[in-house]
């Protein structure tokens, strides 16, 4: 775990110096010292670092860490390494909420709120449907309900895109659905951070039991874990975490799916270690990708595009390595 944290720190220091306005590490440290010693820094370097880069890096770390942690939890409780945090429709629901917000020309905060509510409500609906089935909340009914409701939300999103203003709203919708951190400011992060932490804390505290849940229902129950209650709690917390970050960053795929795999290769499948490792690795990964997104070309590249471009070949490589690599 320590090497992972160290890698994240090094990456953060590097990311601080990369961008349209060149800043050396010494300049960055000097600006940081000025801030810490109380003299409120002035000048371009201070603005670039504290006004633009640091908030954006904080967003990348938060979003990446949260998505990867939620992905690891979902993979454990659904006993499937191919599951991503979207499996129960959280992204589809959040996407629908945000698109509705853009369609109604709401301010940024309103769009974020609708995205957050859309994600939570969709998963709530999925769990509700699964609970009313005969096979109460079995893994299969949950996933099937998630696929169905997710598709429905996707259809609503498409409808909104069709009737949205093609010059003004449609580009904003497309950009949001591809995910980006370019518009995120410090206030956005602070507004979602409490929710993200509220969701993460129980997941971290319960991580041993979540690992036991990755066994069969009967087994986990016989080992002393109240399966239904724990699974619902994990779904609730992971959804809270995902909805929070999706609300400010848009739909960013692949992180929650691929990062837990890499973490598993590094620290093994034991969930008590896997969860923190996934979170740190996800934070580092998204920081790296976002740094690339803002510095590769003159114009901003959507994050979701980059994570897919990196994630898809990596996944194929995993596939080629055979079954052992999955688990």
């Amino acid at each position: 775990m320590l090497p992972l944290c160290a890698a994240l720190l090094v990456l953060a220091a590097w990311s601080l110096t990369v961008g349209a306005y060149p800043v050396t590490l010494e300049q960055a440290l000097a600006a940081l010292r000025e801030r810490l010693t109380g003299s409120p820094g002035a000048g371009t370097i201070d603005t670039v670092l504290f006004g633009i880069r640091l908030p954006r890096m904080a967003a990348a770390i938060t979003v990446g860490g949260c998505l990867a942690a939620a992905g690891a939890c979902y993979q454990a409780i659904f006993r499937n390494p191919l599951v991503s945090p979207d499996i129960l429709g959280v992204s589809a629901g959040a996407g629908m909420g945000a698109v509705l917000g853009i369609f109604l020309s709401l301010p940024a905060g309103g769009i974020q709120l609708l995205a957050f509510v859309g994600g939570m409500a969709t998963v709530g609906l999925v769990v509700g449907i699964a609970a009313s089935m005969r096979e109460r909340e079995s893994v299969l009914t949950l996933i099937l309900a998630g696929v169905v409701i997710g598709a429905l939300a996707g259809a609503c999103t498409s409808l909104l895109k069709m009737i949205a203003d093609p010059y003004d709203q449609l580009p904003a919708i497309t950009f949001w659905l591809l995910g980006s951190l370019s518009a995120v400011n410090a206030g956005d992060i602070l507004s979602i951070l409490p929710f993200a932490l509220l969701g993460l804390a129980p997941l971290i505290a319960l991580r041993w039991r979540i690992g036991v849940l990755s066994l069969d229902d009967d087994e986990a129950q016989a080992l002393g874990v109240p399966v239904r209650r724990t699974r619902l709690l994990v779904i609730g917390c992971a959804t809270l975490v995902t909805s929070s970050v999706v609300a400010i960053a848009g739909v960013i795929g692949w992180v929650g799916l691929v990062i837990p795999h890499i973490a598993r290769m590094m620290v093994g499948p034991s969930f008590a270690r896997l969860l923190p490792a996934s979170a740190i690795l996800g934070a580092a990964y998204l920081l790296l990708v976002d740094t690339a997104a803002r510095s590769i070309s003159g114009s901003e590249i959507p994050l979701g595009l980059l994570t897919a471009v990196v994630g898809a070949p990596f996944f194929l490589w995993l596939l080629a390595r055979g079954r052992r690599a999955w688990a």
């Binding site: 390494p81 690992g211 990755s214 066994l215 009967d218 016989a222 080992l223 002393g224 093994g268 499948p269």
Partner: peptide, 29 residues
């Protein structure tokens, strides 16, 4: 109940590649 009655299911393959020790440790839950 779990502290007094243990369950041994038919042998199966879990979704993740746990080590033998990790599997047995779950018995301490």
């Amino acid at each position: 109940i779990a502290r007094r009655i243990a369950y041994v299911p038919q042998s199966h393959t879990p979704a993740f590649a746990y080590s033998v020790e990790e599997v047995v440790l779950m018995g301490r839950t």
